[in-house]
Design a protein around this nucleic acid. Structure first.
Lengths: 146, 146
DNA sequence: TGCCAATTGCAAATCATTTGCATTTGTATA
DNA sequence: TATACAAATGCAAATGATTTGCAATTGGCA
């Protein structure tokens, strides 16, 4: 039942998306792939501090990854953005501790989420709120765009 | 079946929460209560421009309302925060157009959301993504806090 | 090896939001 | 109705994360 964490082959991933294999980008993808939960930029900066990369460079890399669909940016609230590698497997949702910021993944997609999913998360016993927003394109815009 | 929009009694609401009944705060609550969808700060500034209130004052009012539980701040993504009056009735979720920013409410709570809910939204025909995060307090923090 | 575009570092710019502080305003009470 | 005090406001300045311009560096390919 326990899922084995397999480090993604960062170099291959970069190559597939026509990115250069730079030390920073490789390390970013490795850190993300080895993390059990989505990470904030601050933590990514710390985890790559060996490379002493400029924050601007890290932001640029993350934005490029999100744009390419390699990485998902999860906005928990105004000031809390977390990055996670997009995994082949299931789309994930998350539960965040508003005290220590611990993040746990809930391996259900919206389709099947219900109170059960929350209960299944054993690390939490109080859920104060949740935020859900779908993003898409409305008909008016689709018409206007063509 | 059509829901009638009833303007909230802003003054009573303010009084109940021990806020002073100032013109700005009254108008903010009225604008929010009359809106069919959550509104960004920019729009709230425009809708209250008669009062020529300082943005700082509007932010302060909104934060106070959120803190008091009168208003809900919905974070769609990093740079898109929408405010809505908390209504007695059902907890709502939303679908946002990433092109024109139109927002539509989905009158289902997570408990019952599934593909059906998305289909029921007639204004949209492409849904690119959705973000869901529960916020709560994990056991570790609850233990630490007492 | 050499070239060119992608990536980076650094500094400066951005921009929404917050904060400090003096002034004004709402409300409770005499 | 007048008085007093905390809440609310306006204004200007600070904040702070993220972005951008630009010159220098680096990775990948001929």
């Amino acid at each position: 039942m326990k899922k084995q964490l397999q480090p993604v082959d960062a170099e291959t991933l970069l190559q597939e998306h026509e990115f250069k294999k730079t030390p920073l980008r490789i390390m970013l993808l490795e850190v993300l792939s080895l993390s059990l939960s989505p990470l904030p930029v601050a933590k990514l900066i710390r985890k790559t501090k060996k490379l002493a990369a400029d924050p601007a460079t890290i932001y640029r890399a993350l934005n490029a990854f999100v744009e390419a669909g390699i990485v998902n940016a999860l906005t928990v609230d105004k000031t809390k953005v977390l990055y996670e590698l997009v995994q082949e497997e299931s789309h994930k949702h998350h539960i965040v501790c508003d005290s220590c910021n611990a993040v746990e993944s809930i391996p259900f997609c919206v389709k099947t989420i219900d109170q059960q999913a929350v209960k299944l998360s054993r690390q939490f016993n109080r859920v104060h709120s949740h935020q859900l927003a779908f993003v898409g394109t409305c008909r008016k815009c689709i018409r206007a765009l063509r």
